[in-house]
Design a protein around this nucleic acid. Structure first.
Lengths: 246, 246
DNA sequence: GGCTACCGTTGATCCACGTCAAACACACAA
DNA sequence: TTGTGTGTTTGACGTGGATCAACGGTAGCC
């Protein structure tokens, strides 16, 4: 399929084998031979502007997406307009797995900044993963990891207090930035307080107050979306010692 | 479909092709030929007594499990003892998918009643699903469905009020009993109020009060764990019209 | 059949977080 | 520069669900 796309320099750039996100993404753990075959898989790239949808709930499912640059949120909407953010995704992470089950996407994926994704035709992925064991295995791991992550979010939402949730969120972001070679202590959040709140099951005012409290306590320095973590051990302590409340 | 496969008594007992749960379980959508091959896959069965663990967080992951009889809960524990129930599973549903990502189970699976599962060696499943397209596809659907389900739970936990959560829970249970040929209106819950509460992010007293309220309003008749749904439309209405609260 | 432990219900009170409201900060356009 | 809009912070107040406590029902077990 990639051969059918008129390719030049742009085409070259899509090669997974050349991508520095390999170790975060689908190709992780694959041998060089396998990686070469993988390059067949990734067709086009697609640029998504800030605030635009990569896909919407109800869209027919045809492909999954690997984030090459930028970041996204996924959310589900209730008919009465309530929004639940189900996740924030960064480079190297995979979007669209929700669509496999019904062949329709079940949530919305929206770019938090101008972003770019690699389009992975799903039919082709299934085909290739029947031949390439490493790909099959890694794909299963990616899906399973999403399930485990979701269970962690349930823990957050079901059993933790507001400040614990925010602390867990910040530590998680920090860890993911680290994995991408950025500072663990200082980063820029691409989402609003309202989006954080929706993800954490809190109102934006509560998120804002928790940020202020963390700042007062010396855990973090907050300047709008710019976060500096001053005492990550303190944040970790916060998570375990609080009585629940729910 | 069933009639065409001649099997010995011993074979009968494990054969997926003979199982009346086929249309709820992994084999769904597979052709007859494919089903025959599937019978290679399901090794032993295992009986689990009420309150016993099928597996625990931290156990090495080797197999996934299809519930043949009975029901389970899965939960994750925080170090300080807080429990979050991440799901309730019934016959035909698959347990253990969380283990693929790290090759360790990340949650506990506990039988809510004396139960029996089919043990599906994971290595064998990967192998066979490289050969049997229908199995591969169905397996992916099962994983994806779990992800979608989890997003629904996040919606519950993050954006719904106590009574909405319980209404959604009851409707979900009803729908799943229906899919298994049981009454949609009358069923027996195998879990305690505390477990329901943990799943829904509520305290057991709140669950109990919500049940009482539903009974007062004529939505359901509750007698301990025995539930009769009198007005499912009313429950559905409850879910959409309430202002949020969080 | 009666004991005992667990489970469920209900009431009174409390508090974490939601709601409402006002002010501020920053970005971008005219 | 001023305006306009979106996002953030902070305060005052209200409330849904947690907590604490007492009691009643049911099931498992001698």
């Amino acid at each position: 399929m990639k051969a059918t796309v008129p390719v030049t320099v742009a085409g070259l750039k899509t090669a997974c084998s050349q991508c520095n996100l390999v170790e975060l993404c689908l190709p992780f753990g694959m041998s060089e031979n396998e990686l070469d075959r993988l390059d067949e898989l990734v067709g086009a790239r697609r640029k998504i502007k800030r605030q635009q949808n990569l896909y919407r709930a109800g869209d027919p499912f045809e492909a999954i997406y690997a984030i090459r640059a930028g970041s996204f949120k996924t959310d589900v909407l209730l008919e009465d307009g309530r929004e639940q953010v189900t996740g924030f995704q960064m480079t190297g992470e995979i979007l669209g797995l929700d669509g496999i089950s019904t062949e329709l996407h079940s949530c919305n994926a929206i770019a938090l900044e101008d972003s770019e994704v690699c389009v992975i035709a799903y039919a082709k992925l299934e085909e290739l993963s029947r031949e390439v064991e490493g790909l099959q295995h890694q794909f299963h791991k990616v899906m399973s990891r999403e399930i485990v992550r979701d269970h962690g979010v349930m823990m957050l939402l079901g059993s933790m207090r507001a400040e614990e949730r925010l602390a867990a969120f910040l530590l998680n972001m920090s860890q993911r930035f680290t994995a991408r070679g950025f500072s663990a202590a200082e980063f820029h959040l691409r989402m609003t307080r309202e989006e954080i709140g929706s993800y954490l099951g809190l109102k934006l005012e509560t998120v804002s107050r928790a940020f202020s409290r963390f700042q007062d306590e010396g855990f973090v320095a907050v300047q709008q979306k710019h976060i500096r973590i001053l005492d990550s051990a303190g944040l970790k302590r916060l998570i375990q010692h609080q009585p629940c409340g729910r």
